[in-house]
Design a binder for these strands. Structure first.
Lengths: 342, 342
DNA sequence: TTGAAAGCGTTACCAA
DNA sequence: TTGGTAACGCTTTCAA
């Protein structure tokens, strides 16, 4: 008896199928120059022997690594590191991992690279960069090192077409329509002052929607690092004024809970006296009492599209175009259901 | 002019340093058979040229991939997938990524493999398996395929010594001591009925602590899938009884908020009428009102230790021993500060 | 203490 | 439509 082979190689497959390794390789890589009959025979042997191409060997030859990185931004609450602090980031991660696996790629979660050294250490074929800020330094480092990048949401002030996102403006507009339909006549917005496309879009959507419907604009700022308490404070001021809003929306994750607290302290009933909507969904909004209406920004869809687009970019596709995945889904919950549901 | 080299290789380094590739390799791999002078010279060239060994090439030769996987369990709330739903998992992830990077490894987040095929597709050198349940199927699949595994927390009913964790019993005991010190005389526990070492340990610690101090045991179960509402219901029953507890601890993530809600509905003051402690910390407990005392189970330390232990196991170390990282840290917050702080 | 040569498993290139 | 051969960058083995 021969000593047991430690691993099935392409050579074993070739011998067993009576073809050359080249042919096997061409078949599994869909090079399309094979006789269907040969193809079927080889694929059967592949399955029987349970062979899978070795990533390292393939990578050595092709120069690819079979790994892409998902770089999440440092969110305000994440403290000492890049982290998954929000449901949005979590679902983004899930979507990216599953899409990558479908492509036969591995997905590496990594801190956003700060310099060339970080980029070199990354050792991946490409990067999905989430929520780049205006003039994003990591993106500059990535570009300088020739690393293919696709961003989730566009970078403010950049015309790079390699990005994926939802139609932020349409999404916010839909939410405002819903509030109006439920009887809101004075809608305030709690937002933040940050160099991100997201905030620009939501603010623009709010402004144009107000103009369109003859609503007064009523805006206040919250700190992203401290959304709940600053939102509570800002809401208290607004709601105690002579002409208080009858609905508040916010585009800052976590701020809606602050509005809720302020309303409760002022003995306002929700949704009768005040409706609340969040432009970013999350589990806490679902379990809040009452549950808060929110926009599901389709993070899993966005992540999947980003991974696929990145794959195209890595493979040298030079026909880029932003991909708008959808308009988000409005998750209508008690906080804005003033009338009976249909 | 020669065409630009696409990548610096070990050969380039060797030529520039006037040695052979073998020598360079031996130096960067600390084989220790080199003249210190040669060594210094070579290392300088390595730095100057910015060379880094290519993972695929090295892997092809050594059979290693330079990647380890972190497999998180399907938490109750995670729905359709393995996810980071808790602060604990998030911090575990951060710790693992950073420890892996320090080891020159990449860390891959992956769903827990369900069968042999999944294990094969994983293509990693080893796996850190978080919170294996009793008779864990994925661990069996991993073992059958010869995949090195280290678990975070031990598997109930298994005597596999390759695990890392904190001293759960000591941690819970410390929390109970603190409550007693603050005046608690009747401490209830909200726990769950699941085949995990964690629950066994916390329940055992609670039981023996009660016996030791002559406290009556007062236990209720909550559903892990629905911790907040089931905890609220169970607490309401307990707190409305003839002999209500004056303190409640729970080892289920999210349950403490339910206790809080029940107490609020019953107009109990916290901590004066009721103290609340959670055996798992999380951001929501910090921002609850009042903030809730909790155990920090040192997830980052645990993850780091797990990665290092896994590395040892992969490298053939056969001198295993469970690693107890610590006793957790008791984060004392308002919910249990009945007396003035020291 | 060092180096030459032989691979590791795969794919690219060119010839048949 | 196929196959032979060389090469990817590194480590290992063995000889000097």
């Amino acid at each position: 008896m021969a000593p047991p082979k430690s691993r099935v190689t392409i050579k074993d497959v070739a011998v067993a199928a009576g073809v050359s390794p080249t042919t096997v390789s061409d078949i599994v890589n869909a090079k399309g120059r094979v006789d269907p009959e040969t193809r079927a025979r080889v694929l059967k042997v592949v399955a029987d022997l349970g062979w899978r191409p070795l990533r390292s060997a393939r990578g050595l030859r092709t120069g690819r690594r079979g790994i892409i990185a998902l770089c999440l931004p440092r969110r305000p609450r994440s403290g000492d590191s890049w982290v998954l602090t929000s449901d949005y980031d979590m679902r983004l991660t899930i979507g990216a991992v599953s899409a990558a696996m479908d492509q036969g790629q591995l997905l590496l979660m990594a801190p956003t690279p700060a310099n060339d050294e970080d980029v070199a250490r990354l050792e991946v074929d490409g990067v999905v960069l989430v929520d780049p800020e205006e003039g994003d330094l990591s993106r500059i480092a990535l570009r300088r090192n020739g690393m293919p990048v696709v961003t989730v949401d566009r970078e403010l002030g950049s015309d790079d077409p390699w990005w994926v996102g939802v139609d932020n403006k349409a999404a916010v507009s839909n939410m405002l329509d819903h509030l109006r339909e439920q009887g809101a006549r004075r809608v305030a917005m709690l937002t933040a002052d940050s160099p991100w496309a997201w905030f620009e879009d939501t603010q623009a959507a709010y402004a144009s929607w107000c103009a369109r419907h003859g609503f007064e604009k009523l805006t206040a700022l919250v700190e992203r690092a401290n959304p709940e308490s600053t939102a509570a404070a800002a809401s208290t001021v607004m709601l105690s004024s002579d002409a208080p809003p009858d609905a508040v929306i916010t585009d800052v994750y976590g701020a809606a809970l602050g509005v809720l607290r302020a309303a409760r302290d002022l003995r306002l009933r929700i949704p009768q006296d005040l409706m609340i909507g969040s432009a970013v969904d999350g589990h806490v909004l679902e379990t809040a009492s009452p549950p808060i209406t929110a926009l599901d920004l389709q993070p899993m869809d966005v992540a999947r599209a980003a991974v696929l687009l990145l794959e195209r970019r890595i493979n040298g596709d030079d026909n880029p175009a932003p991909i708008i995945v959808g308009e988000g889904y409005l998750r209508i919950r008690t906080s804005t259901q003033r009338r009976d549901g249909r």
